[in-house]
Simulated scan of single mutants.
Amino acid sequence: MNWKVLDHVPLLLYILAAKTLILCLAFAAVKMYQRKRLEVKQQKLEAIKKQHLEKKDN
Results as ranks from 00 to 15, higher is better:
residue 8 H to W: 03
residue 45 L to P: 01
residue 50 K to C: 01
residue 36 K to T: 07
residue 37 R to T: 05
residue 40 V to S: 05
residue 11 L to I: 10
residue 51 Q to P: 00
residue 34 Q to A: 10
residue 9 V to K: 01
residue 49 K to R: 13
residue 29 A to R: 04
residue 50 K to T: 04
residue 39 E to I: 05
residue 6 L to M: 13
residue 18 A to Y: 03
residue 19 K to Y: 13
residue 3 W to Q: 13
residue 47 A to I: 00
residue 17 A to V: 11
residue 43 Q to T: 09
residue 26 A to I: 10
residue 14 Y to R: 14
residue 36 K to Y: 08
residue 36 K to H: 06
residue 57 D to P: 00
residue 33 Y to W: 12
residue 2 N to P: 09
residue 16 L to Q: 11
residue 38 L to N: 07
residue 53 L to W: 05
residue 18 A to Q: 07
residue 51 Q to L: 10
residue 46 E to L: 15
residue 12 L to Y: 10
residue 37 R to G: 01
residue 17 A to Q: 11
residue 1 M to I: 08
residue 41 K to Q: 14
residue 52 H to V: 02
residue 9 V to P: 01
residue 14 Y to N: 12
residue 36 K to F: 06
residue 17 A to S: 13
residue 36 K to V: 05
residue 17 A to D: 12
residue 34 Q to N: 10
residue 50 K to Q: 15
residue 27 F to Y: 10
residue 45 L to T: 04
residue 26 A to L: 13
residue 31 K to H: 04
residue 41 K to I: 06
residue 5 V to W: 06
residue 28 A to D: 02
residue 57 D to R: 15
residue 21 L to W: 08
residue 1 M to P: 04
residue 45 L to R: 13
residue 18 A to N: 05
residue 53 L to E: 15
residue 46 E to F: 03
residue 46 E to I: 04
residue 30 V to T: 07
residue 6 L to V: 07
residue 8 H to P: 00
residue 26 A to C: 09
residue 58 N to F: 14
residue 23 L to G: 08
residue 21 L to H: 04
residue 6 L to C: 05
residue 33 Y to D: 02
residue 26 A to D: 06
residue 19 K to P: 00
residue 33 Y to I: 14
residue 28 A to Q: 09
residue 19 K to E: 14
residue 42 Q to M: 12
residue 31 K to L: 14
residue 19 K to D: 07
residue 10 P to Q: 09
residue 48 I to W: 02
residue 39 E to K: 10
residue 13 L to M: 12
residue 16 L to H: 05
residue 21 L to R: 12
residue 22 I to C: 03
residue 38 L to Q: 12
residue 8 H to V: 03
residue 10 P to D: 09
residue 22 I to T: 10
residue 48 I to S: 02
residue 30 V to C: 08
residue 53 L to S: 06
residue 29 A to Q: 07
residue 16 L to W: 05
residue 58 N to W: 12
residue 46 E to N: 11
residue 37 R to Q: 13
residue 30 V to R: 03
residue 34 Q to K: 10
residue 3 W to D: 12
residue 25 L to H: 01
residue 27 F to P: 00
residue 31 K to R: 13
residue 58 N to I: 14
residue 46 E to G: 00
residue 22 I to N: 02
residue 25 L to R: 04
residue 49 K to P: 00
residue 58 N to K: 15
residue 25 L to K: 02
residue 11 L to H: 08
residue 41 K to F: 02
residue 31 K to M: 11
